[in-house]
Design a protein around this nucleic acid. Structure first.
Lengths: 134, 134
DNA sequence: TCCATATGTCGAGACTTGTCGAAATGACGA
DNA sequence: TCGTCATTTCGACAAGTCTCGACATATGGA
C-alpha cells in the first residue's frame, strides 16, 4: 500500500497464502492481529500457542518473509506485529481480478466486504484492549 | 453467506489458503474469477494454463473441496465456476479478528477495502465480456 | 453397441515442508 | 568478562504434496 512492502505480484500472493495455510502460522497471525498495535514477543506467542520456541521461530520466519508480520527488537525480546496492510494488499489483488472481469460480480462482493460487524466507525464494536483468549 | 457453504471455521480457512498457495491453483482460480459468471470447462482451463488434464483435475479437486469453485455438467464437459462468496467469507473471517481487537485498526482496513478500482457501481470499470488474456 | 471425446482416479517417484533436539547468536546485568 | 535469558539456526527424520503415465468412467453420436 504505502512503501516498503508489497505491490502484490502473483509470487507474493502465493507466499502469503502458503504462509497462512498452516495451523500454527494462521493461529500466530490471528493472535497478532488481535494484539495490534502493541504486538507480542516471540516467547509469549510460543507460550500461548503451546509450541516449542524453535518451531515457532521457523514459522515466524515464514510469516515474516511473506510480509505478513514484522519484528522489532525491544531489549532482549523481539516484538512481532501483524502487517495488516499486506493482508489487505493481497485481498485487493484478488478482488481486482474479479473487478476487471465484471462489475456485476465485483460490486456485491465489495458491498458485503464493507459492512461486517463494526465498520460503522461511529460505534466501535470492541474496546482497544487486547482480548485475553489465547 | 447464504446456504450450503462456509461459515468459515479455522479449518475451512486453512483449506482455502492451502488451495490458493500453489501456482497452478491460484492461476486457475484467477482465470475462473475473470470468467464469471459463465465459467470454463475443465479441458479449456487445462489448455489455457498448459497443464496436463489429469494434473489439472487434481488441482480442481483441491479447489473444489476447499469450496473455492464448483462445477456443473454440461453435455460432455464439466463447467467450473469461481465461488466468490467463499473467498469473501474467508476474508471476513480474518477481518473480523482484527475488528474485535481494535476498531482503530479495523476501520482504515475496511475503508481501503471498499474503494478499489471500480466500486463506485455507477460506472462499471469493465465490460462483462471475459478478457482474453489466459 | 461401438467409438471418440471429456474428465476423473490410482499409484509411484521426486520434491517440499513441519517438527524438534542441540548448538549458536545476541542482549542485558553483575 | 561471565552467566543468563530470549531467540534463531542447523541438521535429521517423518510426513505431506506435486506431477504425470496408465487406466477408468461418463456422455453423446453413428
Amino acid at each position: 500500500m504505502n512503501d516498503s512492502d508489497s505491490l502484490p505480484d502473483p509470487q507474493a500472493t502465493l507466499d502469503t497464502f502458503a504462509a497462512l495455510s498452516q495451523a500454527t502460522r494462521l493461529d500466530t497471525f490471528r493472535l497478532l492481529v488481535r494484539h495490534e498495535p502493541q504486538g507480542l514477543p516471540a516467547g509469549e506467542i510460543a507460550r500461548r500457542l503451546e509450541v516449542p520456541h524453535n518451531t515457532l521461530s521457523t514459522h515466524l520466519g515464514v510469516l515474516s518473509r511473506a510480509g505478513l508480520i514484522h519484528s522489532q527488537r525491544e531489549g532482549r525480546s523481539l516484538i512481532y506485529r501483524a502487517n495488516l496492510e499486506h493482508m489487505l494488499a493481497t485481498v485487493q489483488f484478488l478482488v481486482r481480478d474479479c473487478c476487471a472481469g465484471s462489475s456485476v460480480v465485483c460490486d456485491p462482493l465489495l458491498a458485503s466486504l464493507t459492512v461486517p460487524d463494526c465498520s460503522a466507525s461511529a460505534t466501535p464494536c470492541a474496546s482497544q484492549e487486547p482480548r485475553n483468549d489465547d
